[in-house]
């Protein structure tokens, strides 16, 4: 009983983590299912056929590739724009800072359904064609704010003396940016870009309003939910999940090992 009281927070914490992963486990398990009817909801019979033939259902892999394409394009542009804004906010004094902050903040405080529907209202009024470019434009718009926040945090965390030291050591403003500021902020920018890509790739609501007849991966799943989602979709989602998780864990592990090596080196010297 005392053990329980002492560890109660830890137990709840682990249970919450488990809770976060239960639906993902369900998705992974169902990717090995041979569903009885058209709905892949209850486990029927073990099968690897979806995995062996992951593009076997028409449209699945096409929509997947389309989502990656839009994600990459939107991420690159939004990362450039967002990084520029973050630099302006952290490094410069200018009039209109408060309005700028507000304009960055508002898209994050607006429900996606409003973002998506308002853009649709604009596109309908100016008869801009829905589809690839409409969706890419929308994604850049809603990712930019997240990029600004992430890069800004990184910039603010940087010791201003590093740039002063660079100027003190004969580096012009341009050289200081190139040799000190940029290399130090780059990990933050890459992290922000990764976040942006994940947001774009998985976005459904904004996309759904502006896609017209175009089918991204989430739009495909939405449409399929009515008539039964193919097992291949479960397999693809499981694959993406585990690949991303392994990638992040490997990066984490490398960082942790490097940190331990550094500590050992300092201790021994």
């Amino acid at each position: 009983m005392r053990w329980l009281r002492r560890n109660i927070i830890g137990i709840i914490a682990v249970l919450v983590l488990v809770y976060l992963f239960v639906p993902i486990a369900v998705v992974a398990v169902l990717s090995f299912n041979q569903p009885e009817g058209k709905y892949n909801v209850t486990f029927n019979e073990f099968s690897v056929s979806a995995w062996q033939n992951i593009c076997g259902v028409p449209g699945v892999c096409e929509s997947f590739a389309l989502s990656i394409q839009i994600g990459l394009l939107a991420t690159v542009i939004a990362t450039i724009f967002g990084t520029m804004i973050a630099f302006a906010l952290v490094r410069y004094r200018f009039r209109g800072r408060d309005s700028t902050n507000l304009l960055i903040f508002l898209p994050m405080a607006t429900p996606e359904v409003v973002l998506g529907s308002s853009l649709l209202a604009l596109f309908l009024n100016i008869t801009f064609p829905l589809g690839f470019w409409a969706v890419t434009i929308a994604h850049i718009m809603f990712i930019v704010s997240f990029i600004v926040v992430a890069v800004k945090a990184r910039l603010q965390g940087m010791d201003p003396r590093l740039e002063e030291a660079s100027r003190d050591l004969y580096a012009s403003p341009r050289a200081t940016f190139r040799y000190v500021t940029f290399p130090l902020v780059l990990p933050g920018i890459l992290g922000a870009a990764l976040l942006g890509f994940a947001l774009s790739f998985d976005d459904f609501i904004i996309t759904f309003f502006n896609a017209g007849t175009m089918v991204t991966f989430p739009v495909y799943i939405w449409g399929a939910a009515q008539r039964g989602i193919p097992v291949q979709v479960y397999a693809l989602a499981t694959l993406v999940f585990f690949l991303s998780l392994v990638l992040v864990l490997v990066v984490q592990g490398v960082n942790a090992r490097r940190r331990r090596r550094l500590e050992a080196a300092v201790a021994s010297s």
């Binding site: 983590l17 976060l20 639906p23 993902i24 993406v240 991303s244």
Partner: peptide, 25 residues
């Protein structure tokens, strides 16, 4: 660090599929 990764990890799996999985649960 590991626990933080695990908190973010659900984002790597499709939002719609995770929601749909609750139909099974």
């Amino acid at each position: 660090a590991l626990m933080l990764v695990l908190v973010v990890a659900p984002f790597f799996a499709s939002f719609l599929l995770r929601t749909y999985a609750w139909r099974t649960i």
